[in-house]
């Protein structure tokens, strides 16, 4: 599903010196797999995730998703491809403050306008997700009215709404208590068990069901997988 071939990424710091975030990393996440990326802070985990999510072009190497060379596409194709095939979950949730939970989830579908579900199907899928994630009761509330756990569940629902092929999660349980963290991890595991691919950056020591591989990164290098 996701195939990363020998990618490297460097950044120029304010003093013009070059810092290598990731170097010659290759990995593959197949459909139905749930892989974790672990490593100390600043080791390049997030850079790897953003590169996999077609948000950060590597200096060299390639990223294939579902056999598509993602960085060979133009910007608009990348955006559409990302909306259709990749779900993101972040530690900070990143919900739009002016939309309620229901609208935040539906916002994920706006970029697919014209090539996706009709309104009725959207409603059915939305209600299913709300129910499954246990957030039906707060569907009409704005993010500031939701608890931390509810906010992250809304973010997960948003990531799942377009039925992506892969979910990229960056410390999704970083701000959650154990109970909520386990709920979120369960959903990601379910997604993988149902044939999706999950690549999750985490420091969490909570047990994760169905993990197929743990990738360790240190100072931008793949240490083990």
């Amino acid at each position: 599903m996701l195939k990363i071939n020998n990618i490297s990424k460097s950044f120029r710091k304010h003093d013009k010196s070059l810092v290598t975030a990731i170097k010659n990393i290759s990995l593959e996440v197949k459909s139905g797999e749930f892989q974790l990326v672990q490593g100390p802070s600043g080791c390049g985990k997030s850079t790897l995730l953003f590169a996999a999510g077609i948000l950060l072009k590597p200096d060299h190497g390639s990223v294939f998703i579902d056999h598509n060379d993602t960085y060979g596409m133009d910007k608009n194709q990348q955006a559409f491809f990302r909306a259709k095939n990749i779900g993101f979950v972040f530690q900070q949730f990143h919900l739009l403050p002016y939309l309620n939970a229901r609208e935040n989830i539906l916002a994920a579908h706006i970029p697919l306008k014209g090539s996706a579900m009709n309104q009725k199907d959207q409603c059915i899928r939305l209600e299913g997700l709300l129910e499954k994630l246990g957030i039906t009761h707060c569907a009409d509330q704005k993010p500031y009215q939701l608890s931390i756990g509810e906010q992250q569940r809304v973010a997960v629902a948003r990531a799942l709404f377009n039925q992506p092929k892969i979910i990229l999660a960056d410390e999704p349980t970083g701000n959650l208590d154990k109970e909520n963290a386990l709920i979120v991890l369960d959903f990601l595991s379910d997604f993988a068990l149902q044939g999706g691919a999950v690549l999750m950056v985490t420091h969490s020591e909570y047990p994760v069901r169905g993990v197929s591989n743990i990738i360790k990164i240190n100072q931008g290098h793949l240490v083990s997988d």
């Binding site: 910007k75 608009n76 559409f80 491809f81 990302r82 993101f88 948003r158």
Partner: peptide, 16 residues
């Protein structure tokens, strides 16, 4: 800025 960054992550094209 954060909101526009999120929109880009969600797959909003530049045109949108």
């Amino acid at each position: 800025r954060r909101e526009f960054a999120l929109l880009r992550v969600l797959g909003f094209s530049n045109n949108k």
